[in-house]
């Protein structure tokens, strides 16, 4: 088994980092593989070192709740198992998945990070570790603590990465004078910028998160009971790479999104509930482009928000009509 450390580190952060999109992939032998666990339940260990205000037992409890939230998605099949406390540290590359606190004062915008050990031939995740940065204060209080970040919320985000999900771009932010971004609203736990101290709303998954994990680990009749939207986004007749495509279902209020992932401007949105959707295309302008793509310079963000000029009807299983949207330059 050829094993390599995948350097990309995905985080729930105050600013930006990481390199991913909806699903992580690796290329080998001309083939692209999606990174995922192939054997479940996935065993994880909790580091036996706590942090200020969060003893190791409370840390383990918050992690267990976050794992359980992902595990409870009825249309996804992934499962996790707590294997015990360990003296090992995250990112030890020891074949054991460890979650724990680490002190990284130099990462002053990074709340936490996830790393992987993968089989580059198959895309199988062999090990995944998560650290939470003790440069910040953490809370496991049920109602949150206005001066501390909610550990369970950030853990839910990191465990999304741990499972193989990249960042979602469903969110709106505004720039602060210091160059950091403040979240105005988020449509996914996997949005790359954390909500802020004392906020516990991201303990619950959103439809985009559910679609992402279900697409990666489909259970039951997920594929047969949900629809896919496929299409192409162009600018001046040329395919657009990195356009953010969002589908809104007026019946459920759900937002599910993806990106155009090649230079032809093609995208695919999975996990849509059958029925009509409004499709909105926007540039990645609410988080750093490098939160989503390895080569940010290749991503076109110089266009205006544009809606598909028809209602898109997601079928029950498979894809409906092909969607084509021509965006207008900014």
């Amino acid at each position: 088994m050829k094993v390599a450390l995948l350097v990309c580190v995905c985080v729930a952060i105050l600013s930006q980092d990481a390199a991913a999109y909806l699903q992580f992939t690796t290329s080998a032998g001309g083939q692209t593989r999606v990174l995922k666990w192939q054997r479940t339940p996935v065993r994880w260990f909790a580091a036996d070192r706590g942090a200020a205000g969060v003893p190791a037992s409370d840390f383990q409890g918050a992690m267990a709740r976050a794992f359980a939230t992902w595990e409870a998605v009825p249309t996804a099949s992934i499962a996790f198992q707590f294997a015990g406390f360990t003296g090992a540290q995250p990112f030890d590359d020891d074949g054991v998945s460890v979650l724990g606190f680490q002190d990284h004062p130099e990462m002053d915008r990074v709340l936490g990070a996830t790393g992987f050990l993968i089989d580059t031939l198959t895309g199988e995740i062999v090990e995944s570790d998560i650290f939470f940065n003790t440069a910040f204060l953490w809370s496991t209080a049920a109602q949150g603590d206005p001066n501390r970040f909610d550990l369970e919320s950030v853990a839910l985000h990191e465990i999304g990465h741990f499972s193989g999900l990249g960042h979602s771009a469903i969110g709106e932010t505004e720039m602060r004078p210091d160059g950091t971004r403040r979240v105005l609203g988020s449509g996914a736990v996997m949005f790359p910028i954390a909500m802020g101290r004392g906020i516990t709303q991201d303990r619950e998954l959103q439809p985009d998160d559910v679609a992402g994990i279900s697409d990666l680990y489909p259970a039951g009749e997920f594929r047969e009971s949900t629809g896919v939207a496929r299409g192409r986004i162009t600018r001046n007749g040329t395919g657009l790479l990195g356009a953010h495509v969002v589908a809104f279902n007026p019946a459920t209020g759900s937002l599910i999104a993806s990106f155009t992932l090649n230079t032809d401007g093609e995208f695919e949105l999975a996990g849509l509930r059958p029925g009509p959707h409004i499709i909105r295309v926007e540039p990645i302008d609410d988080a750093g482009v490098d939160s989503f793509f390895n080569r940010p310079s290749a991503i076109d963000v110089g266009f205006l928000v544009t809606f598909y000029d028809r209602l898109y009807v997601a079928p029950r299983g498979g894809a409906g009509e092909r969607v084509t949207v021509a965006v207008r330059p900014r």
Partner: peptide, 8 residues
């Protein structure tokens, strides 16, 4: 089409 607001 609502986003979860970053407020308590």
């Amino acid at each position: 089409a609502n986003l979860r607001a970053a407020t308590a």
